[in-house]
Design a protein around this nucleic acid. Structure first.
Ligand SMILES: NC(=O)c1ccc[n+]([C@@H]2O[C@H](COP(=O)([O-])OP(=O)(O)OC[C@H]3O[C@@H](n4cnc5c(N)ncnc54)[C@H](O)[C@@H]3O)[C@@H](O)[C@H]2O)c1
Ligand SMILES: NC(=O)c1ccc[n+]([C@@H]2O[C@H](COP(=O)([O-])OP(=O)(O)OC[C@H]3O[C@@H](n4cnc5c(N)ncnc54)[C@H](O)[C@@H]3O)[C@@H](O)[C@H]2O)c1
Lengths: 217, 217
DNA sequence: AATCAATAAAGAAATTTTTCTTTAATAAAA
DNA sequence: TTTTATTAAAGAAAAATTTCTTTATTGATT
């Protein structure tokens, strides 16, 4: 099959997954006043191979100094830029329940470039409330607001059975990416980016390792 | 290097990550009364290749019927057993803040075999409260309770800077696995299982795809 | 009854990701 | 000043994972 779309310097997904941790580690070192950090140190913190760190960083413009390591400040600056954390993107959150509220409270999202502009729900008792300064609107107001604000991402934290309905709404209102926290898989047009974040995968991995250990005894 | 520890029929981690979604899908079909499901259907739902589904399921005892597919009931039964979701494991949660409370409210954990027996905090205003029927104790009471109840997993949802302290406690009290929701990486003995669940990795992936799209235009 | 089409299963091939190896640089120690 | 040890970087090799190919089965269609 002929591939027409030029794949521009694709960075491996595992690499991108690790990068936010490198960044967080470097930010900590910066606060402590450390000027340089070696791949060995980072690898030790992450519990991975040092060459993995070097490879990962080689996808960016960061260059290290032999026998010294990488400049901490450079890692922080380049990585936040590289990961898109240094420009603020706007999002809407639909489903201001337990998980939705937790996300609204999480300052980490703000720190890493995501601003939740507004939340939506259908439950009259939540509508009108403010959660960590973010107002909760009725879902029907979604459209009007999306036009005013430059919102590119929709966060879904409704019960799984309503995920598709909400996704359809989001697509209709012109959102470019959807962050789906429900275990349900949603169907959207090809040009919409979907990121599923399912806790239960992690649970499965823990159980698997636990039981494997048991079997080895 | 000589490898002494026998690796028994290691199931690929990506496979285990996908399995909870297969299970959830099958559970939905079961509720709707559907008796058989093909790899094509599952793959379509998951947005992956059908042979991937077949491969994944081949790690279990499930066998499909040509031209028919897999028995939905069998997928549900075998997969929940295989993933360790059908026996209840006990956990403690430390840090009953925004995220901690959300997890305490999440019935999905219960459904997939994890029972949070108790929560711990240091904030006097949360201690003594009950969140979704789970009592919040002072962290100092951790030890006494761990002995009484058969708790194998510790869930960390405190601020990142306190993650290591909490992890050390958990190890001291004999916990076997730690589910770490903070961005900090913790250091524990080799025989302790650690699962890091960091939201910001997912955020990085979304941003990367968004910006890649922008560059391709 | 014969043909067709959809599917599971197994293995091969391709791709992706990680780990290993080599080289060169350079700070620290002798 | 010379040696040693540590490190980044680049490329090769290995390992893991996904996708492709082939085969056999069997329900549905003709
Ligand atoms: N709570 C957790 O820690 C947790 C963890 C992992 C995954 N999840 C998943 O996140 C999702 C939400 O979980 P939760 O615990 O926050 O549930 P929840 O019931 O606390 O919150 C869901 C919210 O969505 C609102 N809602 C329902 N339908 C809606 C619609 N059509 N439009 C707008 N709002 C709507 C409800 O009014 C409610 O406020 C679930 O799919 C769950 O599996 C939750
Ligand atoms: N809120 C979210 O949606 C979210 C999302 C992703 C990751 N996280 C991470 O989860 C962690 C917790 O976030 P949060 O938003 O729930 O914070 P939070 O401040 O709401 O809750 C933290 C809780 O931990 C308690 N605590 C602090 N030190 C403690 C200690 N030593 N022992 C016991 N309890 C202690 C606090 O009293 C508080 O109740 C953070 O690392 C955060 O980055 C949160």
């Amino acid at each position: 099959m002929v591939q027409y779309s030029k794949k521009i310097q694709a960075v491996p997904e595992p690499t991108i997954r690790r990068m936010p941790s490198y960044l967080a580690f470097a930010e900590g070192l910066l606060r402590k006043g450390q000027q340089f950090v070696s791949s060995t140190q980072i690898a030790n913190y992450m519990n991975i191979d040092p060459t993995q760190v070097t490879k990962d960083l080689s996808y960016t413009t960061i260059v290290g100094k032999t026998r010294v390591g990488y400049e901490v400040k450079a890692i922080v600056d380049v990585l936040s830029e590289f990961l898109g954390f240094s420009v603020m993107d706007n999002a809407f959150l639909v489903g201001a329940g337990s998980l939705g509220s937790a996300l609204l409270h999480d300052s980490g999202l703000n720190h890493f470039g995501l601003k939740i502009e507004a939340a939506f729900d259908i439950n009259p008792s939540t509508i009108g409330r403010k959660i960590n300064d973010v107002e909760v609107f009725h879902i029907d107001q979604f459209r009007d607001l999306a036009q005013e604000l430059n919102v590119i991402m929709g966060i879904i934290t409704v019960p799984a059975e309503n995920a598709q309905t909400v996704a359809d709404l989001m697509v209709a209102w012109g959102i470019k990416a959807i962050w789906n926290f429900t275990p349900a898989r949603i169907k959207v047009p090809d040009d919409i980016i979907v990121q599923n974040t399912t806790l239960y995968s992690n649970l499965a991995i823990i159980f698997n390792k636990l039981h494997q250990d048991k079997r080895e005894e």
